[in-house]
Amino acid sequence: MNQRAAHLSNKIARKAQKAADIWAKNYWHHFPFGGSPRADRQAYLTLWEKAKAVSYPDIEAFETQKGFRIDPQWFHDLALHTQIVVKDSVLCYQHGRVLYAALREYAESRKKQWDQDKIPQGQRMLTILETGTARGFSAVCMARALADADMCGKIITLDLLPHDVRMYWNCIDDHEGTKTRAELLAPWKTLVDAYILFIENDSRIGIRRTATGRIHFAFLDGAHTYEDIMIEFDMVRQRQEEGDVIVFDDYNPVLFPGIIKGVDEGCTRWGYRKDVFGDRQGRSYVIACKNAVS
């Protein structure tokens, strides 16, 4: 009886998941950001100039501490096409600087360790995981970090948004008509082709299917609920070793209490050292580094 009940429960769960997948595909494949441009080109340029003018001393201090800073002109140009959107909240894309500096530091530390261990060049490769691809900004920033570090690696980035379906993206490119994400990122095609693997899937499924080995560095920026944070954190930590890193964005107790609870609980439960810092907009970031197993 128990086996029959378990079989029936699994069957129902599979059907429910299939129905959810169909719904998600229908939604995310059919203009989730709207069926027409949200603003004209000049409006996006005005938003960009305003966002660029804001200074972030805490981010600058973080870059100084890590010893690496992304090229600002390249960074802001990427942001114009992938981060400048029409929305009610304040535009801030400084997580790209955080990811670049943190990953550059990690890559350099790996190089030193590989040199000490005399690891052959063909075996020197980093695996990076991201949840919440969106338009691809963060993944491209991390690809730039790998390229600048002269490091081999792959960036697996997961999102329900499709990579090869044309849509309006609520960005400056919309005035040119609908584009796929691949077309949106065409100016950075060299980096994309060299490093990034776009996966259209829910993170709960996608991590299990695609990240089968070690995850050296992760950026978890998908659903901002406590449950999702804990599920993603748990799956990633099982694939990490001492010194590996997870970066969290939007560490804000007012706007995202689920992130606060999940990150704090996960770091304590699974042995991660937590470095929290913020910017002048009240947005905070967490660099979680895995401790040695005692």
Rank of each mutant, 00 (worst) to 15 (best):
I156M: 06
K154N: 04
W270V: 03
T212Y: 00
D275I: 07
F219T: 03
A149L: 03
E242Q: 09
L80H: 09
L126C: 04
I119P: 03
T225Y: 06
D21H: 10
Y106L: 02
R204I: 09
Y106W: 10
D58H: 06
A43H: 08
M167W: 02
T127A: 08
K15A: 15
K189W: 00
T180W: 00
M230T: 14
R237T: 11
E227R: 15
V90E: 11
S89T: 11
F198W: 00
R104M: 15
F219Q: 12
K66W: 00
Y27V: 06
F219A: 04
M235P: 02
A147G: 07
A79D: 14
A107E: 02
K11V: 05
L78M: 12
G177F: 02
P253S: 07
H76I: 08
R69H: 09
L197T: 13
P253I: 05
E105S: 12
E176Q: 15
V263I: 14
T225V: 14
G132T: 04
Y106K: 10
A79M: 01
D164R: 14
A61C: 00
E49C: 03
Y44I: 10
A147V: 04
A147E: 15
R181D: 00
K15N: 15
A39G: 10
P253Y: 08
L91A: 07
F277C: 11
F33Q: 15
A134G: 12
E227I: 06
T190N: 10
V98M: 10
F233H: 15
K15R: 15
E108P: 01
I70T: 05
G222R: 07
D58L: 05
A134W: 15
A79R: 00
D221C: 12
S9G: 12
L126N: 11
A149I: 11
I12Y: 11
R4S: 13
T212L: 13
D40V: 01
G278E: 12
Q116C: 04
K274I: 06
N252D: 14
I215K: 11
R144S: 03
Y100P: 03
A51G: 07
A16V: 08
F31C: 09
